[in-house]
Amino acid sequence: MKQPLGVILAGGLATRMGGGDKGLLQLGGKSLLAHVVDRLGSQVDGLALNANGDPARFAGLDLPVLPDTIDGFAGPLAGVLAGLDWAAEEGADCIVTAAADTPFFPRDLVARLLQAAEGQSQPLVLATTPRTGDNTLKSGGGKRINRHPTFGLWPVALRDDLRIGLKDGLRKVVLWTDKHNGREALFSAEPFDPFFNVNTPDDLNRAKDLLERA
């Protein structure tokens, strides 16, 4: 398998932050997006940004900006599809996605996703972390997990199937990944969940506290 391309998902509406681009919020002297670019860029063979609206606001990142091709803010799967279409044009076999508001995700994300996909004809893997509580999912091994649907390995070969699903109203990531026998890569949640994302002003303050430990 070729080294995947990377796609940062920044197409959301950021309603809990009052709108705008969460990825452009400042953390430790640079934007959340810059943190994500630094972490993902070194793990992939090329990088693009999925975002809607005027791409000029991201000019400082020097990345291709891929708008959704499905109307109506169809959620992260629309960003995945935009990334898969771009990857197809680039001759890649798969992409790895990361959320634009998650600055501390693992530095071995791509390697671990690829490892979990070994033996799959169509590599499809979501990142997970352990979780406790009654409303959690159970992995094949019976462990309670939290799936992180914006962090995954996605095959270009399934892009047309995804396109059809989105046009038919598909929005939940795990419904589509489960349909295609998607797997899970389990990451440690110690000393904190590395997939912690900034949704609110309080989250941004917490991220500032976590920055020194990341």
Results as ranks from 00 to 15, higher is better:
87 A>H: 08
62 D>L: 11
62 D>K: 15
38 D>T: 12
50 N>S: 15
93 D>Y: 05
87 A>P: 10
67 P>K: 00
85 D>R: 14
51 A>T: 03
93 D>T: 11
94 C>H: 15
51 A>L: 10
52 N>T: 02
41 G>E: 02
65 V>W: 08
96 V>K: 08
51 A>Q: 10
90 E>Q: 15
38 D>F: 03
74 A>N: 14
30 K>N: 00
95 I>P: 09
76 P>G: 09
65 V>N: 06
86 W>T: 03
67 P>S: 01
47 L>S: 05
75 G>N: 09
68 D>R: 06
52 N>E: 10
80 V>S: 10
83 G>L: 04
82 A>P: 10
88 A>D: 15
44 V>Q: 03
81 L>E: 14
39 R>G: 12
35 H>Y: 02
94 C>R: 14
45 D>N: 13
60 G>F: 07
43 Q>F: 03
83 G>W: 06
38 D>C: 05
97 T>V: 12
88 A>S: 13
57 R>C: 08
50 N>L: 11
65 V>L: 07
67 P>R: 00
52 N>P: 01
90 E>W: 00
48 A>I: 03
79 G>H: 07
60 G>W: 06
50 N>Y: 14
55 P>K: 04
59 A>K: 06
95 I>S: 09
39 R>V: 09
70 I>C: 02
38 D>E: 15
93 D>N: 12
50 N>W: 12
73 F>E: 15
74 A>R: 15
53 G>I: 04
85 D>F: 09
34 A>G: 06
42 S>F: 01
38 D>A: 13
57 R>M: 06
70 I>D: 03
33 L>Q: 02
62 D>F: 05
69 T>W: 02
68 D>V: 01
65 V>K: 07
54 D>G: 05
49 L>A: 09
74 A>I: 14
79 G>Y: 11
76 P>R: 02
32 L>Q: 08
74 A>Y: 13
60 G>P: 05
32 L>E: 06
66 L>K: 08
41 G>K: 01
48 A>C: 08
86 W>H: 12
44 V>P: 04
88 A>I: 07
52 N>A: 04
58 F>W: 14
88 A>N: 11
85 D>T: 12
66 L>N: 07
59 A>E: 13
59 A>H: 07
41 G>F: 01
84 L>E: 14
32 L>G: 08
